[in-house]
Structures are given as C-alpha cells and as structure tokens.
Nucleic acid binder design. Structure first.
Lengths: 210, 210, 210, 210
DNA sequence: TATGAATGAGCATTCATTCAT
DNA sequence: TATGAATGAATGCTCATTCAT
C-alpha cells in the first residue's frame, strides 16, 4: 500500500512536470511555431532548465507529438460542447468555441496550432496517421449525433444522408476556424447570421422538395 | 529595337532564374515547411549554388513572401474556375481544384502551404496584412458573383443575405481543402454528394419557407 | 554567507570564462585584426567551442568593444606609470611601457590594437564616442600632473601653457608607439636620447627666453 | 615608331584604369577598412564590373599593396611641403597637411588608412618591409634638412643631435595625425600653439644651457 | 531531481575569385 | 575589353541535445 502510494505520488509529480512543460511548449508553439520555438525558450517559459525537459520528453519532436495529442483532445471536447439541441444554442456554442484562442489554455483548439499540425501532417507520417484516425473518429461521432433519434439527443437524420452532412458540418467548423484565424477582426454578427442560416439546413432531414 | 530585345533577353533570364528558384523553394516548403527548408536544400533542388540565390532574392524571407504571393494568385485563379453556371459543373470544378496538390506547380493551391501561410500569418505582421487584404478581396469577389443577375453570370441573390452566403461559401471551400489535406484518401464520392447537397442551398435566394 | 559564496563562485566562473575569451580574442585580433579574426579561430585559441562564446558575449562586436575597453584601461595604467618625478625615471618608464607588446597580456597597450581601434573609430560611431571621451580624459589627466605643484608630485607649469604641453606629451608618446610598432627594431638608445632631450623641455615652465 | 606609340597608348589606358580602380579602392578602404570593403563595392565605386578589376590587379591583396604604396608617396610629398624656412610657415604647413582628410584624394595621407596600414604591417611581412624601408628613408630625409646649412635651406643642426631630432619630429607629426584622426573636433588653435612652442626647440641647435 | 555549461552540426548569408559570353 | 553570372568556401551565429555536478 505504502509502496503503491509512493509510486503514485511520484507518478503524479512526473505527470505534473510533463503538464508544466506541455503548457509552456504550447504557448511557445503558438507564438513562434513548432520549429522557431527553441527548447531554451520553452524551458524559460516552464521556469526550469533546458536539461530537465529531457528527463520528461525524449526529444522536441516528442513534445510536438504530445501537443498535437492535446489539441486533438481539446478539439473533441469542443465538438461535444457544440452538440446542443436548438440551433440558437448551437450557434452560440460554436462561436464561443471558435473564439477561444488562449495560447496557454490546454483546453482550447488554437487556430495557429491547428494549421501548423495539419501542415506538419503532410510531412510526418506519424502525425498524419494520428490525425487521420482522429478525424475519422470525429466525423463518425458527428454522424452519430445526426442520426440518433431526437429523444436520444440526436437530430434523427436518415442514414443515407448522414455521412455527407457530417462532412459538411466538420468542414464548416474548420473553415470558420481558418477564417477567424486569418481574419481575427471579422464581424462576429456576420458569422452568427451565416451559422443560423446554414445550421438548420444541415440538421434537417431534407431541404430540396419545397 | 535591338536594344530593347537585348534588355528583354537579360530580363527574361533574370525572370527565368527567379522562377526556377521559386519552383524549387515551393517544392522544399511543401516538403519541409518554411523554417525546416534550408537555403542549401532549395539551392540543391534548383540545381545552383546557395550563393547564387542571393543574386535574385535578398533573403529567405523574401522568397517566402514571393511564394505566398504566388499561392494567393493561384487561389484566386482556382476560385475563378469554380464559378460555373450549374451546380453539377461547379461541384466538378471544386473537386478538381481541391485535388490539385502538385507541389511544384505554381498554379495550384497547395494544402500544406495554405496552412503554413495561415499559421505564419499569426506571427508575421507583414504576412498577416497581405493575407487579410487578399481574403477580404476574395470574399467580396464571391459576393459579387452571388449578387449579380443570372443574365450576367451571377446567381441573383438579394443583397442582405449575400455577405453571409459568401462567407459560408469560402469557409466550405477552405474547410474542404483542410479536410482533403488531412485525409487525402477521403472518399471523393462523399465530397461530391456533400457539395451537390449544399451548393444549391448556398446559391438559392431562400430556403426556409417550404 | 554560504549563499553569497555560492553565487560568487558561479560569478567567478563566468568572469573567468569571459577573461579566457577576451585573452584569446585579443591574441587573435593582434595577429589578424578585428575583421580577419574569425569566431572559430578565437574559439580554438580559447580552447572552447564557438557556440559557447555566445553564452558569454552577445556578438563578436561586443567582444571587440570589450577588448577596446581593456586597451583603454591598459593605456591609462601605463600613463600613470609614466608619471615619475625625474626625467631619467620618466624616460625609462616610457620606454619600458612602449616596449610591452605582449599580445595576450591584458595589461599592455598593444600597438597594432591601438591603431586598429583608432582606424575603426573613424567608421563605428560607438567606438568613436568611447575613444573621444577617453582621450579627452587622458589629456586632462596629463594636464593635471603638469599643472600641480611640485610638492604634490606635479611639475608646477603655469595654466596657460598646460593644454599645449599636455597635447604635445600625448602626441609624443603616441607617435613613439606608432614608430616602435612600425619599426620594431629601431634603436632604443636613439629613443632614449630623444626622450631625454625633449622631456625637460615639455616639463619646464619656459624655454624661450635664453 | 607607330608600334611604340600604339603600345604607349595602350599602356596609358592600362595605367588610367589602374588609377581609377585605386581611387575607388582608396575611397572604400577609408570608408570601410581593408577587409570590410568588398570587391563588389570597389567595382561599383569605380563604375566597372568586378571581373574587370582582375584584369588589372591579381587580387584584392595586390590592390591593398598598391594603395599602401600610394599612401607612402603621399606621405613623402606632404613631408616635403612641411619643410619651410620659418617656424610660422612650417606650423601652417603642418596643420594644413594634417587636416587633409579627403578620402578620394590620392595625394593626401588619410589618417584611417595610415593606421590601418600600420596595423596591417604587424601581420603582413611584405607590408612590414615596405613600411620599414620607407620610414627609414623618411627619417633620413628629415635628418638631411636638419643638418644642412641654412644657406642650403636647412637648419644647420650638429650631426650628433640630428637623428634624435629627426625621430622627435616624425613622432610629433604622426602623433598629431593620430590625435586629429581620433579627435577630429580638437581645437586647431591648441595644435597651433603647441606646434609653435615645440618647433623652435626641435629646429634650434641647443636649448639646454640657458 | 535539477542545473546550465558545453558541444557540434547546421543555419542564412557574404565574398573573393573565375569564366563563358 | 568588359561583363556579371556562378561558385564554393568561409563567416557569425543558433540550437537541440548531452553530461558533469
């Protein structure tokens, strides 16, 4: 028991240190990019020595991997929050999620990191695989909402149109993320009006035969 | 005349060399990213000495700027091609444009570069300004199509809904670009069905009052 | 106390390293000049890696500044030593000072560095300012000796002729420094006889009305 | 005859080109120093291509040698001009010579070049030899004036004190050159008063036994 | 556990020099 | 004769990583 507790406490410390490093790294990556952020800067930001970081991560690349993992989780969290019952609530939720740009906040999906990750995935096969798996899962999760019955918190869409709708939904969100990152001053009311126009279309069973 | 021809020939050579460098740089940037691509690699790819590059570009940063300029032009070109009369044609045009990933082809909008640029814009104010100006222009160009009368090759949308529609259109395209870059193997038929479902909605005057 | 000692030890090491680098740099600058001496050569001479130097100095330019500062201090030290009571002692002191050419000795005023500094000052405003301030101070210090009463270790010269005498004294010393640097083999007895002839003139109140 | 004339004309052209290059080089060396002045800058200044310079000089080092030779000649010229009959005239002549700082004027002894040369001589044996030979010649020339009888334009100093006086004279002039280069704003009246005090001493047979 | 000194490979950039035209 | 494109070695400097303490 004592043994176990001791080990556990040590593990906690290890985990805490790792998190401290990752938080610093995320801040630096957002500010300077994966390659331009130096280990020295990350160490300074984490208020520890550069050498110590190597006790918790084998290399800078491993830190990048971990940051990407964190971002993916954050993305999934945000997506969960977007899944609200009414269109109005969903619109509000999406805008709020898109606007979270806090670089130090491990729970937000940062636009610059999102794009840096995506670019890096075209070069690093390991990252590519992780992203692909994740993206597929996300799309199927979204598909899940859309197809579930309304009583179960879904939107009751027929199976045959669900995959396309899920794709459209994801593309829309990511497209907006890109846009807000490139044009941070863009009019939020415009985004809101766009969302409140398109969301009903994406969430309704059919919209052709009027 | 001879004078002019001579000058022209020298200028042609200069321009040819610049293009050779830019083509090599684009290839390297796509493969390794802006920062990880070294001048030596670019020089090797362009089959010239590293020193020679500096006769044609003042710095690596200037090359990056030029590549970004090229990508923006390519993006605008692609956008022009997407502007077709029927939804079927437009769907085909969009998919074709999205699929062009040739790294060395200066006329295609490369996904990795698109994202690297966007990420870099959050750090480099010069790039940010260029992108912002360009994005605003693009959105207003799209708004232009949507609002023009059908007889003039437009879609005749009323002014009050045009900005939101233009934003949605751009986000959709960019979202798809991101998606194809992150999941290159994604089913093209799925994209096609998604596009053919959403495009009519975006291009029609109203879709609420069924 | 322990705290203080510990800090002191670390600071000592830093200072020791800086001095090691400066000694190596001085040797290289004397041997090759400010510009022709490369950081790699300095690093080799200091028996450390080139990168390490940058932990102690921000740039090569900063090292040059430090070396110049050292030389100025050495110059002032030598000047103090020259200030002896009898002409014979002063002659001996001056010759001894002029002959110290040890490149690695931080306490000697090296002829080549003296001239390199002076030449560099005509281009680099920062160096120019430092030199100008220093030279003015040195001349006023010399003026001080000359005007002080003999009881206070001076030569009791009247105020009106002191500035010219101080200027002549400094020019003579520097002229000799230049000469010994350009003609290292020059006859020391000749210099001695020249000094013993001119010094009484410079240190005596009047020499016109014979 | 024609042959000879032709050759002569060609030789004239060669010499003219060499002079054009040297004038440009001198300007650049004064402005940037021997090492920091690039061949490209010199070529630009001489309004010719970099490659062409190599038709007239084998290397940059050869140009430096030639510039040094020119400076030595200029120095000797100035010295001749300083050799005036009265102390007043000589004072005026010296000040005038010292003040000539024109970088492009091949006939003036530039202070920065004077010091750069002197410093370089401590490294390059070839330059060292040239300077030593020249300096010895100059000193013996000065000795010549001083010892010649007054009827022959000399100062009639006895042979035994002449070498020391010649050394003092040269050191004084060079010391002043250094001073004016390091403190360009120095009061000219101070220099004049210093010169008019010391010159009579240097030019008179004896000054001890008053 | 934690430091930060130390390394060495790599970076962007410059420059004297050559050579095809 | 004259050009300037081209080279390749060298330069100042940075940085991920290691290791003695």
């Amino acid at each position: 028991m004592t043994e176990r507790a001791h080990t556990s406490k040590a593990d906690d410390r290890i985990e805490a240190q790792r998190q401290r490093i990752l938080a610093a790294a995320q801040k630096c990556f957002v500010e300077h990019g994966f390659h331009a952020a130096s280990m020295a800067t990350i160490a300074d930001t984490a208020q520890m020595s550069a050498g110590l970081i190597y006790r918790y991560f084998k290399s800078k690349s491993e830190i990048i991997q971990a940051i990407i993992g964190r971002q993916l989780e954050a993305t999934r969290d945000k997506l969960g929050q977007m899944h609200a019952s009414t269109v109005t609530d969903m619109t509000a939720g999406i805008i709020e999620s898109l606007d979270e740009q806090g670089p130090c906040d491990e729970h937000s999906m940062n636009g610059a990191l999102f794009m840096e990750m995506s670019a890096e995935a075209t070069r690093d096969p390991q990252i590519a695989t992780a992203l692909r798996a994740f993206d597929a899962a996300v799309r199927s999760e979204v598909a899940n909402w859309l197809s579930r019955r309304k009583e179960q918190g879904g939107y009751g869409l027929p199976q045959d149109i669900v995959p396309a709708r899920a794709l459209l939904f994801v593309c829309l969100i990511e497209g907006l993320k890109v846009r807000i990152t490139r044009e941070p001053g863009i009019d939020r009311a415009l985004i809101e009006s766009a969302l409140s126009e398109i969301l009903p279309v994406l969430l309704e069973p059919a919209h052709k035969d009027c």
